[in-house]
Simulated assay, not measured.
Amino acid sequence: MRLILFVSAWLFCLGAAQASTSTPAPSTTTRLDHILLWGRSIDQVTSVMAVKLGFQVRPGRDPGGVANRYIRFSDSSFIELLGTTRPNPTFDPGMKEDQQALKGGPGSRSFGFRTSSLDDIHRSLQVLHYAVTPFFSGPDSSKPGWRLFAFDHAPLSSNTFFIDYAADYAPDQFDPSNADDHRVTREHPNGVRELTSIWLVSGDAEADRQQLEKMGFGHAVPVKLPAVGAKGFCVPVGPTALLTLQPDGAGLAQQVMASGGPRILGVSFAVNDLERAQRWVERGYERKLATYRGLSGESVLAPTQDDLGLSIEFHAMPSSSTPCPATSL
């Protein structure tokens, strides 16, 4: 069974027993792993990602009329694409809730943290009285794959889960018997190398920041994103950053909140050659795009809201290993 079938269902599973442990595990053991991105159909979202944006899209499966495909990166992160392939597909509860919130359109409302401290974080969150689910694992085979847990009630404005992978889980990790395939499937025509940040938008960025701090992800930095008309906080999550944002006057963030409510507003990627990525997007969308100074340096914003229900930002490879700036205010 595909990962999404487990993740989306477990976002609504029932509670976990209490346990005792210390404070939450340090965020240095954790990073952002992937988002679940719905298209109007699987072919539509695949075409946008591949033709207009220059990503390499890998095959997935199609049980019950809901197909998935993958875009994998050299830092081990990825995007899971989702879309229906027939009328009246079989939705599990999580899929149904996402589709209702997205009104059947494109967009993303769920993302995952990857951690090597899965058990410690699970115990810590129980002590803090978060309604976490039991552990679930997959795929259905005798070989170790992945384990995850989610929440009965989402603590953030978008749904989230924590996941870890077995060291030899080939679909998401390095397979020593096929190094060339592992490398080639993570090389993209647009030059993307790394997932650097996920942007959450809601009506209360401070509430998300407080929840993240309670969960063990502190050191938030106040930020503004004039390119999308948003302000809030940059929260470091290992080598990646989670932005908790709210509208800041007129702009894209305000439009998204007015039309669809809280969700993932955007995703940032580091590229080898920003001019190459910019040219690819300009050809795909048949328009000129201006660069700007973003949180990660020189950046360009692809005009993807209508196609994908979120924004995609490309920026040059960062010169600093710090995921959040000292300040952008």
Rank of each mutant, 00 (worst) to 15 (best):
residue 16 A to T: 15
residue 16 A to S: 15
residue 17 A to M: 11
residue 18 Q to C: 14
residue 18 Q to A: 15
residue 19 A to R: 15
residue 20 S to L: 15
residue 21 T to R: 08
residue 21 T to G: 15
residue 23 T to F: 12
residue 25 A to D: 09
residue 26 P to Y: 05
residue 28 T to F: 12
residue 28 T to A: 14
residue 28 T to I: 12
residue 28 T to D: 09
residue 29 T to V: 14
residue 30 T to I: 06
residue 30 T to Q: 11
residue 30 T to P: 05
residue 30 T to C: 11
residue 31 R to E: 08
residue 32 L to Y: 05
residue 33 D to Q: 13
residue 33 D to K: 11
residue 34 H to T: 11
residue 35 I to S: 01
residue 37 L to G: 07
residue 37 L to D: 10
residue 38 W to K: 14
residue 38 W to Q: 09
residue 38 W to C: 01
residue 38 W to H: 13
residue 39 G to I: 10
residue 39 G to A: 02
residue 39 G to N: 05
residue 40 R to T: 10
residue 40 R to I: 00
residue 41 S to L: 00
residue 41 S to C: 06
residue 42 I to W: 00
residue 42 I to P: 09
residue 42 I to D: 09
residue 42 I to G: 02
residue 43 D to E: 12
residue 43 D to T: 12
residue 44 Q to N: 10
residue 45 V to Q: 04
residue 45 V to K: 04
residue 45 V to Y: 04
residue 45 V to D: 01
residue 46 T to Y: 01
residue 46 T to C: 08
residue 47 S to R: 10
residue 47 S to F: 03
residue 48 V to S: 03
residue 49 M to P: 06
residue 50 A to V: 08
residue 51 V to Y: 07
residue 52 K to W: 05
residue 54 G to L: 01
residue 54 G to W: 03
residue 55 F to Q: 02
residue 55 F to R: 04
residue 56 Q to I: 07
residue 57 V to H: 02
residue 58 R to C: 07
residue 59 P to M: 06
residue 59 P to R: 05
residue 59 P to S: 10
residue 59 P to G: 05
residue 59 P to Y: 03
residue 60 G to A: 10
residue 60 G to M: 08
residue 60 G to T: 07
residue 60 G to E: 03
residue 62 D to E: 13
residue 62 D to L: 03
residue 62 D to A: 05
residue 63 P to I: 09
residue 63 P to F: 03
residue 64 G to P: 02
residue 64 G to E: 01
residue 65 G to K: 12
residue 65 G to M: 06
residue 65 G to T: 11
residue 66 V to Y: 06
residue 66 V to I: 14
residue 67 A to K: 06
residue 69 R to V: 06
residue 70 Y to N: 15
residue 71 I to P: 00
residue 71 I to V: 15
residue 73 F to H: 04
residue 74 S to G: 11
residue 75 D to S: 09
residue 75 D to Q: 06
residue 75 D to M: 08
residue 75 D to H: 05
residue 77 S to L: 10
residue 77 S to P: 03
residue 78 F to T: 07
residue 79 I to T: 01
residue 79 I to K: 03
residue 80 E to I: 00
residue 80 E to G: 04
residue 80 E to C: 02
residue 80 E to H: 05
residue 81 L to C: 05
residue 81 L to H: 08
residue 84 T to H: 03
residue 84 T to L: 04
residue 85 T to H: 04
residue 85 T to L: 02
residue 86 R to V: 11
residue 87 P to I: 02
residue 88 N to Q: 15
residue 89 P to T: 11
residue 89 P to L: 11
residue 89 P to D: 03
residue 90 T to L: 12
residue 90 T to C: 00
residue 91 F to T: 08
residue 91 F to Q: 07
residue 91 F to Y: 15
residue 94 G to T: 11
residue 95 M to R: 02
residue 96 K to Y: 09
residue 96 K to E: 13
residue 97 E to D: 13
residue 97 E to W: 13
residue 98 D to I: 04
residue 98 D to V: 01
